[in-house]
């Protein structure tokens, strides 16, 4: 079992290399090919052809694309992500500074949506078409269809402006804050916003896969043996249903990372998502390329983790 697991992990890690390589090409090309160049964004209304050409030379953007890509990739392999044009700082410094904040937000949201999603799915499935199922389905549908930025603003209006219970934005107070409690207080609204939407998807899937498992013969056998219904659901059905739910949680990790872009912008959370939004509108090429590459790599790692958990849960998954 152990050697098998390690071989599986090793194989998956090796597979990451071509995936990340392909990603680097896509990320580079998207930013290089969208219209509007960085010199234009830096100069704004004053972008005369002369000024643009001067800045392009300074930034090395007068080189042919393949050359630019090779330079970029070679530097990254040596750990140098370059300097952000807009902020005039090392890209890696900016990304490491921001990535922690995103991990805190997305991680909390992922834990919240997994707990609530699984619970809601199980309750729904075990009381199919009952009142609880209908209510949960209703709430979950709202969650799936509500835009994150809108929900976020509603929560701010209610909890920060009207009740004044929680801060409207930011990660720490401007003064007197800084501790864990301060962080948690700032975390509640954005994490709930982000989690609410992902919860819906996990709840729907858990419900479906639980219902399928509950129709299996061995569940009927368990019930026939006279086992308590709670034991049937949590010990027998839930474990089997998890096999198909875990990879979805892995995918939700990607969704939560992506959703963080909106939520961070609304809540002014100093994470990588809000940074990318600004960087794209400023055509800050190296910052966008480095940032997207890191987020994509994190997504690949999350998926790997989910697959490993699935591998452990269900030995039928082959390496």
């Amino acid at each position: 079992m152990h050697t098998q697991l390690w071989r599986y992990i090793g194989k998956r890690l090796l597979l990451m290399i071509p995936v990340l390589f392909g990603l680097s090409i896509i990320v580079f090309l998207i930013m290089a090919l969208i219209p509007g160049d960085p010199a234009q964004a830096i100069l704004g209304a004053y972008a005369t052809p002369d000024n643009v050409a001067r800045i392009n030379t300074q930034l090395g953007l007068d080189q042919p694309l393949p050359m630019q890509y090779i330079t970029w990739l070679t530097n990254i392999l040596q750990g140098d992500f370059g300097r952000s044009y807009a902020q005039n700082r090392a890209v890696l410094d900016i990304i490491t500074e921001r990535f922690g904040a995103t991990l805190i937000l997305a991680g909390t949201a992922l834990v919240l949506c997994s707990i609530f999603g699984l619970l809601a799915g199980i309750i729904s499935a075990s009381r199919q078409y009952g009142l609880a199922d209908k209510m949960i389905t209703f709430i979950v549908l709202i969650g799936i269809s509500m835009p994150a930025f809108w929900l976020g603003l509603l929560l701010i209006m209610f909890f920060a402006v009207d009740l004044r219970w929680l801060p409207a934005s930011g990660m720490y107070s401007m003064w007197g804050g800084g501790g864990l409690l301060d962080l948690l207080r700032h975390l509640i609204l954005p994490a709930s916003t982000l989690a609410f939407i992902a919860t819906g998807v996990i709840a729907r899937l858990t419900r479906a896969s639980m219902l399928e498992v509950l129709r299996q013969d061995y569940i009927r056998t368990a019930r026939a043996k006279g086992l308590h219904e709670r034991r049937v659901i949590y010990r027998h059905a839930f474990k089997a249903a998890m096999v198909s739910v875990v990879p979805v949680i892995g995918i939700q990790a990607g969704f939560v990372l992506g959703g963080a872009v909106y939520v961070e912008t609304v809540f002014q959370w100093p994470g990588i998502g809000s940074m990318l939004v600004n960087a794209i509108s400023q055509r800050d090429l190296l910052l966008v390329q480095g940032g997207v590459l890191i987020v994509a790599a994190a997504y690949v790692v999350f998926n790997l983790l989910a697959d490993v958990v699935q591998f452990i849960l269900d030995p039928r998954v082959t390496a």
């Binding site: 930025f149 603003l153 701010i156 402006v161 004044r164 801060p167 409207a168 930011g170 401007m174 002014q268």
Partner: peptide, 20 residues
């Protein structure tokens, strides 16, 4: 003086109303 960046205009308004 503390300058706080709040990119989203609606959040900026909410923060003003919330006293932040």
């Amino acid at each position: 003086v503390i300058f706080r960046p709040i990119t989203d205009a609606n959040t900026r308004v909410a923060e003003m109303m919330a006293g932040g």
